[in-house]
Simulated scan of single mutants.
Amino acid sequence: MTHGHLPEGVAALVGGEAIATARVDALLRAIPPRDEVPGPDAANGADKVRCDTEPHQGRGEPRDQPQAARRSQTALAERQRRRWATQVVVADELAHRACAERGLTPPARAEPHTLAVDEADVADLGSIVAVVLAYSPAARTLLAHLTDEQNLPEAAVRDYYDRNRDRFLTQDALRRGVDPFSGAAPADFLPYTDVRDGIAHGLRQAAGRRAFFAWLDRARADVVYAVGHEHPGDPSHPDHEHRH
C-alpha cells in the first residue's frame, strides 16, 4: 500500500482517478461514532458492527482516565475510523470497476446508510470486508459472480462428508451420545445424498469468499492513499492498529 500528499479533498487515487474525501465524510456522517471513546467493538457506532481497527481501552474505564488521555484516545479512534471508512469507500469503487470489467451490470454506487452487520460475518470475514459487503451493492454482485465461478469437484464434497462425520449424526444418535469416531453404526449418520447439496453450497460459498479476498488484495495493491487515509493496519503510519 502506498500513500502520499494528494491534492486537498482527495482521499485516495484508484487507477489514477481521485476518490473524494467527501465520499468518506458522507459515510462517517451516516455511521456516527459512539459518545464514549470507541473500543474494539465500537468502530462505526453500530451495535452489530465490530471493527478490529479501534485501539484497546487499557485498564481503566474512559471516565476514570485523565482528560488529556481521553482526548488522545478519542483522536486516535477518530483517525482510525476515517482510515477504516476510506477502505470501505475504496473497496466499493474497486468492486464497481471490477463488475464493469467482467461484463456484469454494475449496480449504483453505494449511498451512505446505517449498517447492521452480523457479528458472525465479522468473525468470518474481518470487519472491513464484512462492512464492505453490507455497504456495497457492487461488492455483493462481484462476490456472487466469483462464487458462481467456483468449480467444486464431487470428490471434495464427499471428502468433507467423510472427514467431518461428527457434523452428520442423526438426532437419535446425538441424544444417545454416540461417538462419531468410535463405535458408531452407519445408521447413526445422515445419508450423504441427504446432506450433499448443503455441503456443496457451504464449500462453494467459502471458495467464493476466498476468491473475493484474493481479488481485493490484488485490486487495492496499487491504490494511493492520502496521508490520514491509509489502511488502519498499515505499519507505515505511526499509530497503526492491526489485530486478528
Rank of each mutant, 00 (worst) to 15 (best):
R82T: 11
V132D: 05
W84T: 14
E119D: 09
A43I: 04
L152D: 04
F181P: 02
D194T: 14
L203M: 05
I31M: 15
L174N: 12
H201S: 09
P112D: 08
L174Y: 07
P106E: 06
D124G: 02
A206R: 13
D162K: 08
S136M: 11
H242F: 14
S136P: 05
G233W: 14
R97V: 10
T105K: 13
Q80H: 15
G39M: 01
A120M: 12
R167N: 08
A12R: 01
D172A: 15
N151I: 12
A207S: 13
T193N: 04
E93Y: 07
A46S: 13
A30R: 08
D197H: 03
A68S: 13
D118C: 10
R34S: 11
G233T: 11
A185N: 13
P33D: 10
H145I: 11
I19H: 03
G60F: 15
W84E: 12
D148K: 14
V223G: 01
V89F: 02
R165V: 07
Q80F: 11
V14M: 04
R83M: 13
P55L: 03
D124Y: 07
R204F: 09
E17G: 06
G60H: 15
D92M: 06
E36S: 01
A207T: 13
V178E: 08
I128D: 03
L27C: 01
R81C: 07
I199T: 00
A98E: 07
Y192V: 06
D166P: 12
Y161M: 00
A138N: 06
I128G: 01
T114Y: 13
P33T: 07
E17D: 08
E241S: 15
A130D: 03
D121H: 13
H5G: 03
Q171L: 14
G9W: 01
A30C: 09
R176I: 10
A77Y: 02
G103N: 00
D52L: 10
Q57D: 04
D194F: 08
A207W: 11
A77I: 03
L125V: 06
E61K: 14
L76E: 08
K48D: 15
G60A: 15
D148E: 15
G15V: 00
Q65P: 06
Y135V: 04
E54N: 03
T141R: 14
Q73W: 05
R163W: 00
A185K: 12
E36L: 02
A18Q: 09
P153S: 10
D217M: 02
R140C: 06
E230P: 02
V195W: 03
A11E: 00
T2H: 09
G39Y: 08
L94S: 01
